[in-house]
């Protein structure tokens, strides 16, 4: 077991911090798509960098193109303008070098937990017995071994995402990309998942690019946070999070955390309003333009 464990950890570590690799560089990124009313610019001139072993989040109002940016790093989208590079190699197709975790649970329902984790290794051509023991080791390290033979349908949402993260790490990717992975979870589960993810990262030191719209989540997890503007999305600010590591949930009450939160909050709410500009004006923001003083609305009319 210990020998295998070491082997698997080496496998992952090799690809990330040990060789000092896993640098993401997106520069002058732009993406537009055609529509009936002419081309629509989703992202314009966005530039980000993730240094090897760094945890970086992108935060922004919904529809600002943060997922688009992440999908381009994953290789699912081609930028209209600019370049996406990982370790100085241009990204042009999805690859196991860039592990991806999706918001929608993306485990294969027809594969057991272990077979899901094995998938990337199978695609690499690893023989059955080796990948089986590698997957078991990984699941054991993540405390999921008891569920190795379960089908995903029987797992809770949090469990599915944990398996999803382990699956993405199994091939030893250079970087890990997460697209609002905890967005569909309830608040309590989300907090636990954040703790698990930060602890996991603490041990792996893999480069992570994390997309979220949750400010607390971004601050809690990240070394740096990029804040994006409303459509067309571009990088509005870059905030370094100087909180000590390892991170604990109790830090979320610290004055340092709250100050960061306040700063990011004002940046985001401005953009959220802009993003909803067509839908929300000053009147709408008040909820109602009249005060009914406790009377039912139907009476007033």
């Amino acid at each position: 077991m210990s020998e295998q464990t070491a082997g698997v950890i080496d496998n992952i570590a090799d690809a990330s911090v040990a060789s000092g690799k896993g640098r993401i560089e997106v520069s002058h990124f732009g993406l537009s798509y055609a529509s009936a009313e002419g081309p629509i610019e989703a992202v314009a001139d966005a530039g980000i960098v993730v240094e090897p072993g760094e945890f970086v989040s992108i935060i922004g109002p919904s529809g600002c193109g943060k997922s688009t940016l992440l999908n381009a790093v994953a290789g699912f989208l081609k930028p209209t303008r600019g370049t996406v590079r990982v370790d100085d190699e241009p990204v042009n197709r999805p690859s196991a070098d860039r592990g991806m975790v999706f918001q929608q649970y993306s485990l294969f329902p027809w594969k057991t937990v272990r077979e899901n984790v094995e998938f990337g290794l199978k695609m690499k051509g690893m023989e059955r017995s080796r990948r089986e023991s590698a997957a078991r080791t990984l699941l054991g390290l993540a405390g999921l071994l008891a569920f190795e033979n379960q089908y995903p349908d029987r797992l809770s949402g949090g469990m599915k995402q944990r398996v999803g993260i382990v699956r993405a790490l199994a091939t030893g990717p250079k970087v890990l990309l997460l697209d609002e992975p905890f967005g569909a979870l309830d608040a309590q589960t989300r907090i636990i998942m954040q703790q698990i993810l930060t602890n996991m990262w603490q041990r792996l030191k893999i480069s992570v690019l994390f997309v979220t719209h949750d400010i607390d989540e971004a601050i809690f997890l990240s070394d740096r946070v990029y804040c994006m503007t409303a459509r067309p999305g571009t990088i509005k600010a870059e905030i370094t999070i100087p909180l000590p590591r390892p991170r604990q949930q109790s830090m979320m009450m610290s004055s340092e955390f709250l100050a960061l939160r306040r700063g990011l909050m004002s940046l985001i709410s401005e953009e959220s309003l802009k993003a909803m500009s067509g839908e929300v004006n000053d009147d709408a923001l008040q909820g109602l333009t009249i005060d009914t003083h406790g009377h039912a609305l139907s009476e007033m009319i």
Binding site: M100, Q104, F119, M123, T171
Partner: peptide, 18 residues
């Protein structure tokens, strides 16, 4: 077929036949 599953398999290194 859920397109997310297709993308998930691609990001795990699956080729067209796989």
């Amino acid at each position: 077929v859920d397109p997310v599953l297709v993308r998930a398999s691609q990001s795990l290194g699956a080729n067209e036949f796989a």
